[in-house]
Write a protein that binds this DNA or RNA. Sequence first.
RNA 1: GGCGGCAUGGCCAAGUGGUAAGGCAACGGAUUGCAAAUCCGUCACCCCCGGUUCGAAUCCGGGUGCCGCCUCCA
Length: 475
Amino acid sequence: MSFHLYDSMRREKVPFEPLIPGKVAMYNCGPTVYSAAHIGNFRSFLFADVLRRWLEVSGYEVTQVMNITDVGHLRDDDPEQGADKMEEAAKKEQLDPWKIAEKYTALFFEDLDTLRIQRAHQYPRATDHIPQMIEQIQQLLDSGHAYEASGAVYYDVSSFPAYGRLSGNTGDDLIAGARVAVAEEKKDPRDFALWKSDPHHLMQWDSPFGRGFPGWHIECSAMSQSILGETLDLHTGGEDNVFPHHECEIAQAEGATGKPFVRHWMHARHLMLDGGKMSKSLGNLYTIGQLAEMGHDPVAVRFALLRVQYRQVLNFTLPGLEEAATAVRRLRLFATDMEEAAAGAEPGDPPAWLTAAVQRFDESMDDDLNTSGALDGVFTLMNEANRRKVTGPDAAAALAALRRMDRVLDVVREDAPEDLDAEVEDLVRRRTEARAAKDWATADEIRDRLAELGIELLDGKDGKVRWRRTGAGAS
RNA sequence: GGCGGCAUGGCCAAGUGGUAAGGCAACGGAUUGCAAAUCCGUCACCCCCGGUUCGAAUCCGGGUGCCGCCUCCA
């Protein structure tokens, strides 16, 4: 089998077919850096991460680009009423918009590292690509897909018949929706702004169409094409991006070049929090920083987000996160056990049970990144290896297979021990001495004390004692 | 109003025609100074009704319930 994906445009599972065999040009819609990204945002960034990792493990050479939106999007298409998110945040925090962008961009990268999300090859900033946007707007004006009116430039949707194909939103529906604010100067309610002017706006640039700032959607089509070329193999985003953002991107990109813009669209479903929609106004959301402060292992967060396939609704709960943490701890201990069982042996030919587990993993991933099924492969590998008490070459083979799976999931790998905690080591040693002397009271007292420090003791059969951080304790 | 998704054991969740993966929890056992951890084992007939079929969780029709998008949002 080869990689198959659910293509949002074609609305079915299709074989992945990049323009150039073996190479992948991938663009992911990234964050708008006006506040800290939340767990829901990271679901789709993590989805893009897993997608890239699986393609690479499958032998593709991937170029991944994710945009950073650091110029505000108006909330409303009417410049008179528009409130800009970047500028609102700037006002609230009493910083200028550029400082806001800088602050939250830095935080975004920090959170990526925390969740072990691999860095994309490029993170283009909207503010660094104003000339490319102006150029694309000019192309659209030249080709008759756009028009100027009252200091703004609008896309003429009637000039692009394919508009609505991705989202299924027909013109009639849009008008019937009646939530589209109709600017007087627009020829058609569906028309959207490519360039706007507003003397009060803080971020402004000169352009052939007058001093102003770019519209909501032009940045992604301009940046993706200027970096990856006119046709992308993969374009991802959250499901909310489908309309209007991606619909407009297609109109802009294909209007400007006349060539197909994207070969495959993929969209991550939103996650729910405690059974409901996440909402900033209700305050029911988590940022990565908040979860870390609460003492949760970031890798457990990664696991909790991965165990449900990206196109399924995922209900994120704290008990669910604890479950994930338990599963991760068990896998990690298993990996350690396998290392010992392998005892430095070279991996032997994989036994049938191992091949079956690997196949389960691979086929699941090939099937539109079915991470739930893939985890079945991981745990089956573990259970079979345990049941058979494998050692030597078989253990080495199992470990090698596990490591390969973990190149995609990245939840088993342990961070390099940062600090060999002298205090903990000392306590553990004193407890071992107490136990040898059958001084159970002292031994248990030390055990309790370690538990308070977030240290769990793992007493082995042969008197060997290991310890690990539970991740939940105060440290 | 338009478009779309989902309903599988206590919880999470695979599985698209042949008699239900996996995780967490629970229970029994091994192990342990006691515990924890770990290991072994046990634990479901798939929302309702009707239909197609030798045979359906899986296909069709009709219900019921939950959710998302259509508006800034991943």
